[in-house]
Amino acid sequence: MGDNPRRSFLYTMASVMGAAGACATAVPFVRALEPAADTVASGVTEFDVSTVEPGMMATVMWRGQPVFVVHRTQQMLESLYGHDELLRDPLSEAIPEVQADWMKTKEQRITRAIKPEFLVVSGVCTHLGCIPAFEPDREGGGDMPKDWPGGWHCACHGSNYDLSGRVFKGVPAPYNLFIPPYRYLDESTIRIG
C-alpha cells in the first residue's frame, strides 16, 4: 500500500482532513463546557458598605462565592503595620489577582482598599478554596502566630491572613486574599464585578 505514492498521498490527505474535522467538531463541545452567557452575566453584585458596623465583617455573595467586607476601625488599620517580616507578600506584588488598578501608593498596597476603612476581599483561601474564619481580635498562640494582629484563620489547612487579607509566612496558602474588581457607585454603595 505504502509503495504507491498517489495512494499514500490520498490516505494522508484524508487522514489530515478527518483529524481537522474532528478537532473542529470538538470546538462547540469545549465551548459548551465554558460558563454560559447567563452565568457570566450574573457576576455582578451591589452592596451598601455603610450597613456594616465598625469592627464587623459582612459576607457578600459574588459569582456564587463569598466576598468579605470589613468595616475596619482606626485600631484595626493601625494593626496592619509592624509585622511585615511575618508576611509572605506585604506589598501585594506577587500576582495580578492580589492587586488592583487603583493600588498606586505604598499605603494602598498595605490597606488594600479604595476607602481604607472598608476592606473588600475575596473570601476564598488561596490555598485550596476553603472559607477562612474571621478572627479580628484573637490572642496569639495555638495555631496563630505569636503576635497575632487579628485577621483570618483558615481551619482547612491552617493558613493565616491579617486584617488586609495578607498571607503569613509558614502556612500553605501561597498568596494574599484576592481583590475582586469593584468600584463605588456613590458614597457607600459598591458594585463588585
Binding site: V27, P28, F29, R31, A32, E34, A36, A37, D38, T39
Partner: peptide, 13 residues
C-alpha cells in the same frame, strides 16, 4: 431554552 440561548453553542448540540 437556556441551552438554546445561554449555553455556548448549546443550540448546535
Amino acid at each position: 431554552e437556556r441551552i438554546m440561548r445561554e449555553v455556548n453553542d448549546g443550540w448546535l448540540i
